[in-house]
Write a protein that binds this DNA or RNA. Structure first.
Lengths: 101, 101
DNA sequence: GGTGTTGTTCGATTATTGTCGAACAAGGGT
DNA sequence: ACCCTTGTTCGACAATAATCGAACAACACC
């Protein structure tokens, strides 16, 4: 099945924001921002692999990530440049880990 | 009743993003960004006043707005400076109206 | 005091979303 | 061919969130 990676300009802002407005997905995005490309399995944030797969789908369909097959794995990466061009400051604002209150 | 306007640093990023990830609330935020302070009743986006009140509460409790009483009305305003300091670029990224796809 | 305006709160309904286990599919070994 | 690893998809269920009408509260004004 084709991964369905939309044109970012075709994704409503609310979908982009909604994709980022989840703790698990935000951790995934942060890991991607730090580590570059990574396999789906590398995101073990206390959820089942079914749930993880779901979150990666949400991120992909919101235009935040791209996925490519590599053997039995799938490598995911952030669409950084596109995001920074279309929503300058958004990623930075979200990625900056602030001290817990 | 006290309006419960939290310290922005105490609000999780996901709550801020979730507050913005709704079409009605995003319209409210845009109206506030353009028009400055406004009464609750001025946001007529096709929802009932109960729903509107609910959305304004979500925005307030996410630290995005402040509310003050003025007669029988309540005036709402964006916490622009604080937002820009804590999440530089976030508001701009979200407020910029892009041409519909 | 009574009336109209402006919002909020309550309770209920509906829609959306997060979560899981189990079944399935595709590859890479050996 | 067989098995193991890696992900995806399929229901199902639980939790969250959006929406509304109606009832309520606060205030202004006459």
């Amino acid at each position: 099945m084709e991964p369905h990676e939309p044109d970012l300009t075709a994704v409503p802002v609310t979908s982009v924001l909604a994709a980022l407005a989840d703790d698990v997905r935000l951790q995934i995005v942060r890991a991607l921002a730090e580590g570059g490309e990574a396999a789906c399995g590398s995101f073990d944030f206390g959820v089942s692999k079914a749930t993880r797969s779901h979150h990666l789908k949400v991120l992909r369909e919101a235009g935040l990530t791209r996925t490519r097959a590599a053997g039995t794995s799938r490598l995911v990466r952030l669409r950084r440049d596109e995001l920074n061009e279309l929503y300058p400051g958004l990623l930075d604002a979200v990625l900056t880990q602030r001290p817990p209150a």
